[in-house]
């Protein structure tokens, strides 16, 4: 994903009914309204689910579907204080986090050898060698875009759950801090704190890489 996806707060066409109108119809029992809402929000929802499931497309589809069903089944509890998509993304994020926790528990139970390894072993085996800064080496070649992308991806994956969620919603999905706070059910200050910690941690993890680049340039 190169660019953040546009926020689906408003209908694409002015003639289209708004989310609020569709929700009213849905509460009255109009099934077609649910279909329109799914079509309107599924792309963005799937994109969020995909980043939260580490790129597992099948699981992302399942999570998206589960979140839609959960949302529609408890549509009566939606008060309309926030936009529908904020409320729905909150359900989606929680569904994805629950799914991730279930997956981790399952892997711990059935693949204990994978979890028996220490963090140090894990990071040593999965991280690539740090760039060779010797005279004969070529730092620019070593710091190819692909390598940096892989390093950043791994660093993001190792962030604590809330920091990772806040970072992904901000950087990959272009949400504002206010929207993230609504989606995560946290105060804006808390979200800001998660974001800063995540950024600082990434910055520290990738210090060697970015400073080698700096020296070379």
């Amino acid at each position: 994903m190169k660019q953040p996806v546009d926020r689906p707060a408003a209908p694409r066409n002015p003639a289209d009914p708004s989310d609020e109108t569709l929700l009213d119809r849905l509460k009255e029992g109009a099934g077609w309204a649910a279909e329109v809402l799914v079509r309107r929000h599924q792309d963005k929802a799937y994109a969020i689910a995909l980043t939260m499931t580490d790129g597992d497309r099948e699981e992302a589809r399942d999570m998206t579907q589960e979140a839609f069903l959960k949302a529609f089944r408890k549509i009566e509890s939606f008060q309309g204080n926030a936009a529908f998509y904020t409320w729905f993304y909150r359900i989606l994020v929680n569904t994805c986090l629950d799914g991730r926790r279930r997956r981790i528990r399952r892997e711990r139970r059935f693949l204990p050898w994978r979890w028996g390894r220490s963090d140090a072993e894990e990071s040593a085996s999965s991280a690539e060698e740090p760039p060779d800064t010797g005279v004969d080496s070529d730092p620019l070649a070593m710091l190819s875009g692909k390598q940096l992308v892989a390093e950043v991806k791994q660093a993001v994956g190792s962030l604590p759950e809330k920091q990772q969620t806040a970072f992904q919603l901000k950087v990959l999905h272009g949400m504002t801090i206010r929207e993230i706070a609504a989606v995560m059910g946290a105060a804006e200050g808390t979200v800001k704190s998660h974001l800063f910690r995540a950024t600082r941690r990434l910055r520290e993890t990738l210090t060697d890489w970015v400073e080698t680049e700096e020296e070379d340039t």
Binding site: K2, V152, R203, E213
Partner: peptide
Amino acid sequence: RMGRVLDAAREGAPEAELASPAA
């Protein structure tokens, strides 16, 4: 530097296009 790190994070994210039949 930080701009580059954030760009790398965006590039590393999976392509999130939901194919029409899947949608």
